[in-house]
């Protein structure tokens, strides 16, 4: 639909250049930040992946593709797949839990809406490690959950919940649920209420109005929420370490171990780069899908 003119006249080009220069002072800090803290580190990371490891960390400047070849080993493929799987489960659960929550909050009166939103965000103000340790206390064999289950007679022996993949899912879900609720809430809350009224007025039952109007229009918010949950869940390494007991290794742990334990910087860099690329792909897909929803199919 939008086609840029194939050949801009020199005058137009000069004008664009001037406009670009005028914007420069405003863009410079952000661009500088991105270059220093994003482009250069990622560039370094990419650079590292093509060299051999040093004995005690660092690099030996001998070109090699071994690091990339190593990725194909079943061990690492398995870890990456498991990470994707866990992050995916966490995302789906967050969506299922978060949607009704966001929907309910958007329907509250302004006063209670504020209260509910603060309640959602509140855990973020508490130290993340403390919150994670709290889960250990809750889930371990002598923890509250087991005590409670035994007290009401559901089980006689403690169920081992800590240090399982399920525990990791619970921990990640707990950690990132607000990141699902907030964008969903934002998209639901900004929906023009007259759209639902119009659907109703045209004879749609409340459920039908929800399914055909509210739900599709909140999809971009849902997708944003999914990204907000999936991306950090996939690269988290603290929760798998503490709640998963290090038994279930996710990509995040693997990267960390390569740098700190195995002292294999090049391979760690390769894993980190793969993780980054994977997440970029996910984000690009999300952006494309959102645009398609809001703007409709591309027209020629």
């Amino acid at each position: 639909m939008t086609t840029t003119t194939p050949q801009a006249t020199p005058a137009v080009r000069a004008q664009r250049a001037r406009r670009g220069l005028a914007a420069a002072p405003f863009l410079a800090p952000g661009v500088f930040f991105l270059i220093v803290f994003m482009a250069i580190p990622v560039g370094l990371l990419a650079f590292y992946t093509f060299f051999k490891r040093g004995r005690f960390g660092g690099l030996v400047f001998e070109f090699t593709l071994d690091n990339w070849a190593k990725l194909a080993e079943p061990l690492y493929v398995g870890v990456i797949l498991q990470s994707v799987g866990l992050a995916f489960i966490v995302t789906v659960l967050a969506l299922l839990l978060g949607y009704p929550m966001a929907y309910a909050i958007a329907g509250l009166s302004p006063k209670w809406r504020t209260v509910a939103l603060i309640a959602v965000v509140l855990p973020f103000w508490t130290n993340f490690l403390i919150r994670t340790y709290a889960w250990i206390l809750l889930l371990n064999n002598a923890g509250f959950v087991n005590q409670w289950l035994q007290a009401i007679g559901i089980t006689d022996e403690p169920i081992s919940m800590l240090y399982t993949p399920q525990a990791i899912v619970v921990g990640l879900l707990y950690m990132y649920l607000p990141l699902m609720v907030l964008p969903l809430y934002a998209s639901l809350q900004q929906l023009d209420p007259s759209l639902r009224e119009a659907a109703t007025n045209l004879g749609a039952s409340p459920w039908r109005a929800f399914r055909t109007v509210t739900l599709p229009l909140s999809l971009p918010g849902a997708l944003t929420g999914c990204i907000f949950v999936f991306v950090p869940a996939m690269s988290n390494f603290v929760i798998p370490e503490l709640i998963g007991g290090g038994k279930t290794v996710m990509v995040g742990n693997l990267v960390r171990d390569q740098f700190y334990e195995a002292r294999d910087w090049p391979f760690g860099a390769t894993l980190a780069l793969v993780l980054t690329m994977l997440l970029v792909v996910v984000i690009v897909i999300q952006a494309a899908v959102s645009r398609r929803i809001t703007e409709g199919p591309r027209r020629g």
Binding site: L195, E197, L202, P216
Partner: peptide
């Protein structure tokens, strides 16, 4: 209920469904 009334309305903001043609 509103969806069972034999009355249709044109909304002030038109309330067109933005995701539909």
């Amino acid at each position: 209920p509103a969806h069972k009334r034999p009355v249709n309305m044109m909304f002030q903001s038109y309330a067109l469904f933005p995701h539909l043609s």
